[in-house]
Amino acid sequence: MTTTVTSIEPAPVSPLAAPAPKRWHRVREWRAAIQGFASWLGVGCLAFFLLIATVGRIGRDPEALVTLGAEAPSLAHWFGTDNLGRDVFARTASGAWTSLLISLSCILLAVLIAVPLGMWAGWRHGKRTDDIIMRGLETMQALPMFIFVMFIIMLVGSKPIDIGPFTIGMEPRIAVCLALGFVPFFARIARAGTLVEMQEDYVAGLQVIGVKQRRILTREIYVNVMPSVWVQCFLGIAIAIFAEGGLSFLGLGVAPPQATLGNLIAEAGSQIIGGAWWYAIFPGLVMVIGILGFNLVGDAFNDNVLGSRGEAERA
């Protein structure tokens, strides 16, 4: 119960840097996390992926028909063109961007829903609230996540939903559906983290002082639960990119002609036969690099920021 401090090395404080602002501790923690070849490889992959997804899109139209038919990679079209004559690089970049947006918003939304839920359940550990929340999440998890997401998307349908002046397209819906799939995952992490923190002396200390329970939960326990959640976010994004790809592959993804990495690869699969290897190879490579990047960086943070504690919290 009192082993808390053991895994966190107190950073030596030089008297000069004395009134160190809070942020510095965090930056130091995160910088310390990037150690070793695998981590740097992850950072490299991530940077490459983000570069393609952002800078790569500038000045390129992923939907314009620029050549008559499929053309192999050339100086004009780095990744070649597809059978409809669209630039594969432009489509890959735009696809990476779409996939990234969907994954990021999906994970953010999932965290937004899951963390309060998980922390609440953890706080009410063993009581009815905890029971109801956890049974609910278990029900969601009864189906494999992917099937669950597919089921939700089928329920919601794929036609644009009009709410007043706003039209909800496929992207936000996929993000929301995927997010629902991720809620149990993050809620469990948050609940486990809360349970561990609740055992800490400082919580009892704050209770004795007379700090309100909600405030202890939101101001004190929260800051200790979130690091492991953020680390899992990286892995979550990698999974979400994968999942979005899977949904697009099954035709449940965004509508054509919008590109995502998933639907590019899905279409490429049947085009390889004509000898057009570039269809599948390049978008596939970018997707693999992105997923690898998010995974490795997430792992690095997990190992080096949370250490063995992170392991325990995930279990």
Partner: peptide, 21 residues
């Protein structure tokens, strides 16, 4: 494929086409 080619063409005259499959 047909829809995507047509949509790309129509975008030339400023028509925004949403493809629903």
């Amino acid at each position: 494929d047909v829809a995507q080619v047509l949509a790309a063409g129509w975008s030339q005259i400023g028509l925004k086409v949403t493809i629903e499959q």
